[in-house]
């Protein structure tokens, strides 16, 4: 069997998810190292004083896309470009936001709606298993005995 190409990663079928794998780890190296720099108070201050300058002087190897995503606080885009949530959360903390603020941004809801969703027991897995819908159908099929005659493939 040939090695899986990037396009064939099985986890890419999970909706709304950017799995931080070795590829993203490599591509996102400078983005994540920028986030890591925010662990130091003096760096947080320098960044807040002049964000563009901080990035240009200290993290010149960021791609233009990564730089833009940071400045615009596009959290999903940062994940797509190799950011990892445990790192990008440090940018949110630097802005003084609680984590649920970032969660709300990433899920396209208000912080209140997101908090309410969690209190109601969170986002259900039903309907959220796969982009293709195959995993949901498979799950439904294995949890209920289906007679052979009824077997259908979408």
């Amino acid at each position: 069997m040939a090695a899986k190409t990037i396009a064939e990663k099985d986890y890419d079928d999970i909706p709304g998810t950017y799995v931080f794998d070795a590829d993203r780890s490599r591509r996102g190296f400078h983005l994540n190292m920028f986030c890591m720099s925010l662990l130091k108070a003096e760096n947080r201050k320098a960044f807040k004083d002049n964000e563009a300058k901080y990035l240009d002087e200290r993290f010149s190897l960021l791609t233009p896309e990564q730089r833009e995503a940071i400045l615009k606080r596009q959290y999903n885009r940062m994940l797509e470009l190799g950011g990892n949530i445990y790192f990008t959360a440090k940018l949110g903390a630097t802005d003084g936001h609680p984590f649920q603020h970032l969660a709300a941004l990433m899920t396209g809801s208000t912080q209140q709606d997101y908090a309410d969703l969690m209190l109601r027991g969170g986002r259900p897995v039903e309907g959220n298993r796969s982009k293709s819908g195959k995993a949901d159908k498979l799950k439904a099929a294995t949890s209920k005995p289906v007679s052979k005659g009824n077997k259908r493939r979408g």
């Binding site: 709304g16 998810t17 950017y18 999903n76 969660a103 899920t107 997101y114 986002r123 897995v125």
Partner: peptide, 17 residues
């Protein structure tokens, strides 16, 4: 246990799992 804190699917919980 179950949790997702990243992406549009953040907030996922699966108590059955």
């Amino acid at each position: 246990m179950s949790h997702q804190i990243s992406g549009q699917r953040a907030g996922l919980i699966n108590s059955k799992f």
